[in-house]
Amino acid sequence: MPDNKAGNRLIKTGMLAIAALMLLSTPLLAQHKSHEVRITTPDPSVTLAGTLLVPEGAEGGTVMLMITGSGDHPRDAIISGAPLFRLQAEALASAGIATLRLDDRGTAESTGPTTRESTTADRVVDMRAALDWLRDGHIATFSQVGVIGHSEGAGIAARLAAQDSPPDLVILLGAPALQGKTVWVDQQVAGFRQGVGIEDPEVLAQVEAHMREAARLSIEGASADDMRENTVALFALGNIDVSTEENAHMLAGFTGRMTDDWMRHFLADNPSEALAETRVPTLAIYGSHDRLTSAALNAGPLTAALLSAGNQDFTVRILPEQDHFFLRAPGKPVGQHVFGEMELSGELMEEIIAWLSRRQ
């Protein structure tokens, strides 16, 4: 006899997948209110501007604060022409979940120094102010206030979860779970392999050694001049002579980036310390083809850290055929971005909505 329960499960799973895809491809089905907000922070120069999206009937329910990754992002977090956070917020609104998305400090309508002129610790302070603002019920009152962080934003979300009065729920997308220098070196070697097209293990080992030295020098406060010799040798491995006038800007750009405050802080910082104190319900999702915070490098340490925290409610998922941004151009390989053609993963939103729905 056929297994009716198994068949019903398959039908239900298929319906959920179709529903998630519909959320991303059709207008919002539920009426909702979009509020333009301004949030002050402990830094008098920083006021955060954003959009609070509240679906009909969502007041009194769950609201998710959305935290962008590294870089100076507007509230929609535009990636390859796709408004990553707006798409996520609209999908969540269709499921009756409110969201707050914000322009990063010093970007678009938010004031103050930019994220590149600040550090991750500064952004934690900003997001703490936003979390408190939501809990104070300025526009709407919610029973649960959670956070969704992407990439660096996931690290910020973990830090909020490790503080007093943590968010009620935490969703981490492409979360780093090791010291910044380890994640950065992994990113750079992957980028070198892909961008320069070199697969020779001996050459890649030399690239990794020079990247590690660059990270060490940055953390220890070395000047751009101190980094010159190592940087010249690094670029030479890619057959780029940065001593020439034509390529001199590449040398200046790399050493300049390695000596700014954000990079020094990022390389020295270790989000696993915050994860090891995260005890609130947590969902972590990685893309199988993520080359920026790879699941192979980060998922294991993240799981170990949450276990050491004694977290009783966490889920880790690796979504197949997805990159760091959970975006894909139709008909293109995973990770190949085409400006203006990127579509958000329906599977990602299905996972998030199902997880949140079980915790309403």
Rank of each mutant, 00 (worst) to 15 (best):
M1K: 08
D323L: 07
D126P: 07
H150F: 06
N8V: 03
T111A: 09
R358Q: 12
R101L: 03
G137V: 10
F235D: 00
Q360V: 06
G340D: 06
F266C: 00
A354I: 11
D122G: 04
Q163T: 07
L283Y: 08
V334H: 07
R212W: 15
A157V: 01
S357A: 13
D269P: 01
T62Q: 01
A190M: 13
E56H: 13
G310P: 04
L160G: 00
A276N: 05
T315L: 14
T255Y: 03
G331H: 12
L204F: 15
A175S: 15
G221D: 07
T182D: 15
V189W: 05
T13P: 00
V242S: 03
A177K: 04
L204C: 08
M64Q: 05
D186N: 14
V54Y: 00
A19Q: 13
L172Q: 02
T111I: 05
F339V: 12
L267M: 10
A17K: 11
S218A: 12
H138E: 09
A304F: 05
T99S: 12
P113H: 07
W262P: 00
T120F: 03
G221R: 11
P44A: 13
A222V: 07
V46Y: 01
G50Y: 01
L302M: 11
Q144A: 09
I353H: 00
A299G: 05
H210Q: 10
S294D: 04
D122H: 12
H210M: 06
T114F: 03
P176K: 04
G197K: 07
A157Q: 00
L134F: 12
E229F: 04
P166W: 01
D290V: 05
V124A: 09
S357N: 11
I198Y: 06
V189D: 09
R212C: 06
Q144H: 15
H35A: 09
A236V: 03
D3Y: 14
G331R: 10
L306Q: 05
F85M: 04
L356Q: 04
D313W: 15
D261Y: 12
G69F: 02
I39D: 01
V37Q: 06
A299V: 06
T182Q: 14
R159T: 06
L131P: 00
Q179R: 15
P74S: 13
S118D: 03
T259N: 08
N247W: 14
R359Q: 08
F235G: 00
G340H: 15
G256R: 13
A304K: 13
T47A: 09
L28M: 14
A309Y: 04
S357Y: 13
A121V: 10
I219M: 15
H73F: 15
E90M: 13
L267I: 06
S143C: 06
R216I: 03
A121Y: 13
T231D: 04
V207D: 02
P44W: 05
M15N: 10
D260E: 14
V37A: 07
P320R: 09
L267R: 01
V170G: 00
N298I: 03
G57N: 05
I352V: 15
L319R: 08
G256F: 14
P83N: 08
V232Q: 03
K12T: 09
E213V: 05
R9A: 07
L267F: 08
